[in-house]
Amino acid sequence: MSTPRAAVVGAVAATCMALAGPAQAQLPSYGVGRPPTPEEIRAWDIAVGPDGAELPPGEGTAVSGKPVYDAKCAACHGATGREGPQDVLVGGQGSLATAKPLKTIGSYWPYATTVYDYIYRAMPFTQPESLTAAEVYGVTAYLLYLNGIIGERDVIDRRTLPQVKMPNRHGFVPDPRPEKFPR
């Protein structure tokens, strides 16, 4: 998703120049709305797509992430990510085709970038968007490590995270509905 970001930057530059004139309205037919400032976009544009283009600078490892996990996550997700009471984050590989599938980051999530995106935007549950980039990289690395996907000292950053091979990367198929039911 590097293209959208480049487009945004270009568009913002163009609209900032437009600000010089008296007409600020962005919607031409109705004369309402104003262009966003680059700061506004930066503050809100927290989504990280699979190519990781939006990832911030910084890095972490399972070693740096463990203390963050223990302090800020373990109470709800368990000492090793397997115990709950909230969503189980570790384990389940090889279970998807069984009678008791366990869907976790390790067994089910197709992209490692989603782990970063989701933890920053939504976790810890009662303090979303409170972790630093280094903390999110660290805790992401720790959860990938607990799932046996990376090594304990592997550095996770904006370059390496999109390259992590998730076990279920190719586990998803498009929607074929409406189905033909044998009647």
Binding site: A97, K103, P110, Y111, G171
Partner: peptide, 29 residues
């Protein structure tokens, strides 16, 4: 945000995907 491809958010990967008996899952249902 208008983008070129889906962002693969948690709600369209970990959740709201439909697991089939063979272990694959339907996405964007």
């Amino acid at each position: 945000k208008v983008v070129a491809a889906p962002a693969q958010t948690r709600e369209e990967t970990a959740k709201y995907t439909d697991l089939l008996p063979d272990g694959t899952a339907r996405q964007f249902t």
